Simulated scan of single mutants.
Amino acid sequence: MKRILATALAIAASAAIAQTTTASTSSGQATSTGSGQAWPAKPVRLLVGSPPGGPSDITARTFGDQITKRTGQPVVVENRPGAGNNLAAGVAAKADPDGYTLVLSPDTVLTVNPLVYGTQGFDARKDLLSISVLASFSQMLVCHPSVGVSTAAELVAKAKTAQMNYASGGPGVPGHLAAEMFLQASGAKMQHVPYRGPAPATQAVLAGEVACGFLATPTVVPHVKAGKLKALAVSSSTPSPLAPDVPTLAKALNQPDLDASFRLVLQTAAGTPPAVVAQIEKLSAAIMQDPDVKAKLQTYDLVGIGSTSAQAQKVMGGEIARWEPLVKRLGLKAD
């Protein structure tokens, strides 16, 4: 009788533990790594390689708030702009490989920066591990009203007969790549004027110092609505919810396959234990696929994704293959 009672109690206890674990996992809360340590068990540092207000920053703060809400651990978002997001990425690459220093970067840190910036004290493709593609974003082609164009076709026609220029936040950043894809597809020519970040590039176009630029949609839409800039196209394959009347670049140039969208990738130091990576990956998917999170990001022209680590690494391989030929053809190098 005692043995039967003991066995019954053991079974009941096991069932209770299993039920608790299942409830915790399904709610997106931290779960054990298998070594008895749950992630996160302490505050998390999340680096962003751009100033506040851009796609990376908006996504990072939304993501960090959700981690805190779901696990109770604070997430400190730290902006370290510069060198095409390399400054922030470099800090994460050299951090302890324990999953407590993360970085959210546009995919250009992996796809083009190793070719554009040369030695940065770290190798992004070897020293960083991609955990998840959190979101995707695009750029908007805008021009100063004094340029006198209302469509991308008009800009192409003008650029073929007159010397024109365009601004970007630096060599190899998304705005630069989107512009070069546009020029390659249209046959037009414009002189690239790189600035030290997207904010001064935007100001240059607003001031009429530079004619046009591919810039972050949430940043320039208010200026478009105020009549200070003219919107000609968005670089993604689908219209922006912030400006549904602005055509896609594919439609504007009548080239259906034209798409210059970019991804925001959550990364950590290579060598981080697989069990920790698996927990971060799982929590990332739960957060980024949450309908409320996706709806919030959409108001900033961001598409929530939350991929697995394997998917992220596969996507990055494809993006490297897509952008490397363009970078090499242009001979892009940072000063």
Rank of each mutant, 00 (worst) to 15 (best):
K2E: 14
L9H: 09
A12T: 15
A12I: 15
S14Q: 11
A18E: 12
Q19Y: 13
T25W: 08
S27F: 02
Q29I: 00
S32N: 08
W39P: 05
P40A: 11
G53T: 12
P55A: 08
D57G: 05
R61V: 08
R61S: 07
F63I: 03
T68F: 02
Q73A: 15
E78L: 09
N79P: 09
R80N: 06
G84P: 04
N86A: 14
L104V: 11
L110T: 05
G118T: 10
F122M: 09
A152T: 05
T161R: 12
T161N: 11
G169Y: 01
G169R: 00
G169H: 00
P171M: 12
P171C: 01
L177K: 00
E180A: 00
E180C: 00
L183K: 05
Q184R: 14
G187Q: 06
K189A: 13
Q191A: 15
Q191F: 12
V193K: 15
Y195T: 00
G197K: 02
P198C: 04
P200Y: 07
T202R: 05
Q203V: 11
A204I: 03
V205D: 04
A207F: 10
A207N: 14
G208E: 05
G208S: 02
E209K: 12
E209T: 15
E209A: 10
V210P: 04
V220D: 04
P222H: 08
H223D: 15
L229S: 08
A233K: 06
S235V: 04
P244V: 11
P244M: 12
V246Q: 07
K251P: 01
D257N: 09
D259I: 06
A260Y: 02
S261N: 10
F262M: 05
A270K: 07
T272Q: 13
A275E: 11
A285C: 03
A286W: 01
T299R: 14
D301E: 07
V303G: 03
G304S: 15
Q311N: 08
Q313D: 05
V315M: 07
G318A: 13
R322H: 14
R322N: 13
L326W: 02
V327Q: 03
K328D: 10
G331N: 11
L332P: 00
